[in-house]
Simulated assay, not measured.
Amino acid sequence: MTGSDFAQSVAPRRVGLMGGSFDPVHQAHVNLAALALAQLHLDEVRWIPVGHPWQKSRQLASAADRLAMVEAATAHEPRFVVDPIEVNRSGPSYTLDTVRALQGSAEPDPGHWFLIIGQDQYANFHTWHGWQELLQRVTLAVAGRAGEPPRPGDALAAQPHDVVMLPLPPMPVSSTDIRARLARGEYPASLAPALVPEPVARYIANHQLYAPSHR
Rank of each mutant, 00 (worst) to 15 (best):
T2C: 00
T2Y: 01
Q8H: 13
S9A: 15
R13L: 13
R13Q: 14
V15W: 03
G16P: 06
L17K: 05
L17Q: 08
M18K: 09
M18Y: 14
M18D: 05
G20C: 05
D23Y: 04
D23M: 04
D23A: 03
D23R: 09
P24M: 04
P24S: 05
V25S: 04
V25C: 08
V25P: 09
H26M: 09
A33M: 02
A36E: 05
A36Q: 03
L37A: 06
Q39K: 10
D43C: 01
V50I: 14
K56D: 11
S57M: 10
Q59T: 15
Q59G: 06
L60I: 02
A64T: 12
A64Q: 14
D65W: 00
L67Q: 15
L67S: 06
L67M: 15
M69F: 10
E71A: 15
E71F: 01
A72V: 04
A73N: 13
T74W: 10
A75M: 11
H76S: 13
P78Q: 12
R79D: 12
F80R: 03
V82Y: 12
P84M: 08
P84I: 07
I85M: 10
I85T: 15
E86K: 10
R89Q: 14
R89F: 06
G91T: 11
Q103D: 08
P108K: 12
P108R: 10
L115M: 15
I116Q: 07
I117M: 13
G118Y: 06
G118E: 08
Q119N: 13
Q119L: 07
N124R: 12
T127V: 00
W128A: 07
W128N: 07
W131N: 01
Q132P: 09
V138C: 05
T139S: 13
T139Q: 10
A141D: 06
V142P: 11
A143M: 07
A143N: 11
G144W: 03
A146C: 08
G147C: 02
P149S: 08
P149A: 14
R151G: 02
P152Y: 01
G153W: 06
G153F: 06
D154R: 12
L156F: 01
P160Y: 09
H161V: 00
D162Y: 00
M165F: 01
P167V: 02
L168W: 00
T176R: 10
A180T: 14
L182G: 07
S190H: 13
L191P: 01
A192H: 02
P193C: 03
L195Y: 15
V196R: 05
V196A: 12
P197M: 08
V200E: 12
V200M: 12
R202E: 15
N206W: 00
H207R: 15
Q208T: 08
Y210K: 05
Y210H: 11
S213L: 03
H214L: 07
H214V: 05
R215N: 13
R215T: 10
